[in-house]
């Protein structure tokens, strides 16, 4: 599992894309997942993206997140050095477990989108009494 990023990093196509500093259509954001007992929590890191720039869909077990940041620079700002290669983010996650799609909630704070995915009844942890 440690190899995944490395494999990709050594992918010549990817390297080319990275090396020449081209602008990309979108970036794939870094994300984290936690199991919170009743919910799964997914945090998607999209710096500069506000609530209004986020679009989330959930369909057929596919969770899709898009984020766009405001690309307007303040008046009079001239770029001297840029590293960011896109103003847009896109992430698609095919979920492996049943979640209650109607009750997915989301909020954005400090450039992090936090999605709370309630587990469907069938997969919730259950306490079994000993009889």
């Amino acid at each position: 599992m440690t190899t995944l990023s490395k494999q990709q990093a050594s992918d010549p196509a990817a390297q080319r894309q990275s090396g020449d500093g081209t602008r990309l259509r979108y970036l794939r954001p870094y994300y984290e997942v936690d199991d919170r007992n009743e919910n799964f929590e997914v945090r998607v890191f999209m710096p500069g993206v506000r609530k209004s720039g986020v679009d989330i869909t959930y369909e057929n077990d596919m969770l899709t997140v898009s984020g766009t940041r405001d690309r307007d620079l303040p008046e009079g700002w001239r770029p001297l050095h840029r590293e960011r290669r896109s103003d847009s983010y896109h992430l698609e996650l095919q979920l492996n477990v049943d979640v209650d799609g109607d009750r997915i909630s989301a909020h954005v704070e400090d450039g992090v989108l936090t999605l709370t995915l309630p587990k469907a009844e069938t997969i919730k942890p259950r306490r079994i009494p000993v009889e």
Partner: peptide, 12 residues
């Protein structure tokens, strides 16, 4: 939770 992650994307 996640079965597949960006199936169409291999770019990092």
């Amino acid at each position: 939770l996640i079965r597949r992650d960006d199936p169409t994307l291999t770019r990092f």
